[in-house]
Design a protein around this nucleic acid. Structure first.
Length: 426
RNA sequence: GGAGACAUACCCAAGAGGCCGAAGGGGACGGUUUGCUAAACCGUUAGUGGGGGUUACUCCAGCAAGGGUUCAAAUCCCUUUGUCUCCGCCA
């Protein structure tokens, strides 16, 4: 949520910032509502003060044997007078909220305006592997190595899914273990969270109301609940409606969960295999920081995500996203994109974002500074990492002429020391 | 899933229609005493959100949340949420 005060004080500034995200925002109607709200409050509260004063005098008047009925009538009249305005005030406040809550976060000033095409890769690790043989894509590799069963997944679930089998499952688990143990070593607190969340959690994270169609909803839960599309949604709500102490910040968490997404209509034919599915595994990092601590935290999260990929020895590029490509709730996002040889493109494996106080305002996540003053926290999140693109990249980038795939050294402890995946004979 | 009990400040807890923004205790903080610690004693300790005012200050809301009854609600009624206990079911 954008600070209402800021909109009121610098409407043009907010308007221009949102324009960089491709969002048309006309502050005038909102400003009119804010003025209206203030007028109503003034009038409604003056009336209430009058009512309170009269009511408070009742016991004394009673004791003195005065006419209490007269006071009752007066207060009743005042209340009747106020009624319409109170309703109007409520409506105006609801309207203000509805207007502001759908606005995306403002991008940081240094971001390029515009969408995807203005993203700027600014760091590259490794280089594109060159194959002296005809390279296979990851679907072919996964099947020939006996790692993944797409057919049976379709049978038991449907398209957009897969089953990790045998060493394939072990490899997936090895990746997750590698991520998890790294985060623990870096001092992050491990969390295992519920996968079914209530609506407020989606609201605070900023996924609602705008993206309600993108998640899976449970039909028979009351109130309605949804299945998390990312562990961020859970982690960023852990301290909802809390006042943290400045001494406890930053708080550093990570969680492993599968992520469930509808991905309605987004399937593209070239995105075969596990590039895009309804369910994928991800380890997610989240930090809560002070309002001046989020830039440092952001750099740390980006470096951590990079380090994970570098540990695997995979070629990737680091992208600074243009304003319009940043997530709805985010002021700033860097993507780490791994090279998928068969597709000839880089695909996102990690997205590190700084929400600044956008989520904290929605969820009333605050902290008290040394002087006892209240501030909104800043929240940040970053994947560390999603396996569903790392896995294909790993298979494809590490494939050998004989169809085998080298297992990165960091994963071997969880693979029983195995160093190479070999094709299974049919 | 069924039945019941409960929800008050940092914690425990009183409170049963006006005298309650809320007793009492603990804790925390400050002070006195003390060679230090402990103890004792004294004091402070409702945060928050929203109006108004240059300030002093003042008003409105707020006793889980949302409605209602009433001139007046922590207190009565309804709904929701959460916690606990018992029963059923179950990994």
């Amino acid at each position: 949520m954008i600070d209402l005060k800021l909109i009121e004080e610098k409407p043009e500034y907010v308007k221009e910032a949102l324009a960089k995200k491709g969002w048309e925002f006309d502050p005038q109607p909102l400003l009119a509502l804010i003025t209206k709200r203030r007028e109503l409050i003034r009038s409604v509260e003056a009336n209430k003060a009058e009512q309170n004063k009269l009511s408070a005098s009742v016991p004394a008047v009673k004791k003195a044997g005065g006419n209490v009925q007269e006071i009752f009538a007066q207060v009743k009249a005042l209340a009747a007078e106020n009624k319409d305005k109170e309703v109007e005030l409520k409506n105006v406040e609801a309207e203000i909220k509805a207007t502001v809550e759908v606005l995306p976060n403002m991008p940081d000033p240094d971001l390029e305006a515009g969408a995807k095409e203005n993203n700027k890769p600014f760091y590259v690790f490794g280089k594109k592997p060159e194959f002296s043989f005809k390279a296979k894509d990851h679907v072919e590799l996964a099947e020939s190595l006996g790692l993944i069963d797409y057919k049976r997944a379709a049978k038991i679930s449907g398209s957009g899914t897969w089953v990790y089998t045998g060493l394939g499952a072990q490899l997936e688990w090895a990746l997750l273990n590698y991520f998890i143990s790294t985060h623990i070593a870096d001092g992050y607190t491990m969390m295992l969270v519920p996968h079914i969340l209530n609506e407020e959690s989606g609201y605070t994270a900023g996924q609602f109301p705008k993206f309600k169609e993108d998640v899976f909803w449970l039909e028979d839960s009351e109130p309605r609940k949804f299945i998390l599309p990312t562990a961020e949604t859970a982690l960023v709500n852990i301290h909802r409606d809390e006042v943290l102490s400045v001494d406890d910040l930053p708080k550093k968490y990570f969680a492993y969960t599968p992520c469930y997404r509808k991905e309605a209509g987004s399937y593209r034919t070239e995105e075969r295999g596990m590039i895009r599915g309804y369910q994928f595994d991800k380890v997610e990092m989240v930090q809560y920081t002070t309002d001046d601590g989020s830039d440092v935290a952001f750099d740390e999260l980006v470096k951590k995500a990079q380090a994970l990929l570098e540990g695997l020895g995979l070629h990737y590029q680091l992208d600074k996203l243009a304003a319009g490509d940043c997530s709805h709730s985010m002021a700033r996002t860097y993507d780490i994109e791994v090279w998928i040889p068969s597709m000839g493109i880089y695909k996102e494996v990690s997205s590190v974002s700084n929400a600044r106080d956008y989520q904290a305002r929605r969820g009333m996540i605050r902290y008290k500074d040394k002087d006892g003053k209240m501030h909104f926290c800043h929240t940040l999140n970053g994947s560390g990492l999603a396996t569903s693109r790392v896995y294909p990249a790993l298979l494809e980038q590490n494939q050998q002429e004989d169809g085998s795939v080298i297992i990165p050294e960091v994963l071997r402890p969880w693979m029983g020391g195995l160093s190479v995946l070999k094709p299974i004979k049919k």
